[in-house]
Write a protein that binds this DNA or RNA. Structure first.
Lengths: 188, 188
DNA sequence: AGCACTGATGTCAGGGACTGTCATCGCGTA
DNA sequence: TACGCGATGACAGTCCCTGACATCAGTGCT
C-alpha cells in the first residue's frame, strides 16, 4: 500500500509545510517529508527539483493565469489596464490565506527561500512582459508595465497575509495599483 | 608553505573564476578551487559561506560605496539626484570589464547563481532605501527611488559588459538614468 | 483469464556541499 | 623563551541530490 495514492505532489507539499512549521526548515530532511507523505526520498526528487521547490509549486499556475489574462484582455485596453486584468485573475484563483501565512513565515526566515521567491517573481515578470509583447506592446513600455504589475502584486500580497488583515486579495491588489498610479503621477 | 600567504579571499575568488571558466560551474568542486588557491576545502568555507558566494565578494563594497555616496550627497539634492550620485560613486570603484564579463558568463548560465544575484540586488536596494530614510526621505518615495536606482544600475551594467561595448560604465549609467526619466515622464 | 506494455515508485550506491571538532602552525607579546 | 591568539589542516559525519536498475499497479490487447 502507499503506492498509487493520488495527488502525490500535493501530499508532499502539505507534508513539507507541516514539518517546516513544526521543526523549522533546516531541521527537516527531505527523507522526513517523503516519509510523512508515504513516499521515498527518491520519489520526492522526481516531483520537485530540490528541497526548496516544494514551497513554490503554485508559481506555475500563477504565471499561466496572469499571462492568459493578459493575452485575453480587450485589445483596446492600455498596458496598465491589461496588467490590472491579470492581477484580478490572479486574485480569483489564489488558495487560502492561512496556508499563505504559514508558507510566508517559513520563507521569510530563510534567505535561500527568499532567493527562490525572487527568481520566481522575476520569471513571472518576464512572462508578463512576453505576453504584452504578443499584444504588440513595445519593449520599454512592456517591461516597465510588467515590473509595475509585479511590484503591485508583491505589495498587495504582503498586505493580504499581514496579521489582522481581513480585506480580500482582489481589493488589496486594486488598492495597491491605485496607490502606485498616484505615486508615479504625483508632483515629485 | 602555503600557510600565511596573503589575500586568501582574493586568491580563492580568482581560482574559482578561472576554474568556472575552464570546466564550468557544476563541473568544478569546492575542493578544486581551494587546491588551486593552495588551501583546503575546509578553509574555503571559512571565507565564503557556500560555493556560490565566491562570485559575489564585491557586493559588500558595492553596497557600502552606494550607501555612503547617498549619505554624503548635498542636502539640497532631490532623491533622484542623490541616487544619481550613488551611481557615479559606484562607477568609480568598479573593477575591470573583462573580469566582469567572465563572471557574467558564468552567472548567466546557472539559475542558482542568478538567484544569488537577485538577492544581492534586493539587499542593495534595501540599503539605499535606508540611506535615503536617514536623509529624511519618507517611505514610498525612498523605496521607489532606490528601486529605480537599482533598475538603472542593472541596465547600465548589462550594457557595459555587452560584447563590443566600449563606453565607460559611468557614461552608460548616466544614459540609462536619463532614459528612465524620459520614460516615466513620457505622455503615457 | 492471460499477456505485454507503460509509467510511477522503491532500492541501492555514490558524489559533492557543508559543518563540528580538535590538532597544528605561524606570529606577536610579555 | 614561554605563552596566547588567530588562521589553517585533518577528519568524520550529515544531508542534498543523482544515476541505474528492479518492482509494482494499471491499461489495452488477445
Amino acid at each position: 500500500m502507499g503506492r498509487w495514492e493520488p495527488n502525490t505532489r500535493e501530499r508532499l507539499a502539505r507534508a513539507a509545510l507541516e514539518l517546516f512549521g513544526e521543526r523549522g526548515y533546516e531541521q527537516t530532511t527531505v527523507a522526513e517529508i517523503a516519509r510523512r507523505a508515504g513516499l521515498t526520498e527518491r520519489t520526492y526528487f522526481r516531483h520537485y527539483a530540490d528541497k526548496r521547490e516544494v514551497l513554490f509549486g503554485g508559481s506555475d499556475v500563477l504565471r499561466k493565469v496572469f499571462a492568459t489574462a493578459v493575452a485575453e484582455a480587450p485589445a483596446s485596453d492600455a498596458p496598465i489596464d491589461v496588467v490590472a486584468a491579470g492581477l484580478e485573475a490572479v486574485a480569483a484563483v489564489f488558495p487560502g490565506r492561512e496556508t499563505a501565512r504559514q508558507r510566508q513565515s517559513v520563507v521569510g526566515s530563510h534567505p535561500e527561500l527568499q532567493e527562490r521567491e525572487l527568481i520566481k517573481l522575476a520569471t513571472l515578470s518576464a512572462a508578463v512582459t512576453e505576453a504584452l509583447h504578443a499584444r504588440g506592446v513595445a519593449d520599454p513600455t512592456a517591461a516597465l508595465a510588467a515590473e509595475a504589475g509585479i511590484a503591485v502584486f508583491k505589495i498587495g500580497y504582503e498586505r493580504w497575509i499581514a496579521p489582522a488583515e481581513h480585506r480580500e486579495l482582489a481589493d488589496l491588489l486594486h488598492a495597491s495599483l491605485t496607490e502606485l498610479k498616484a505615486v508615479t503621477a504625483g508632483s515629485r
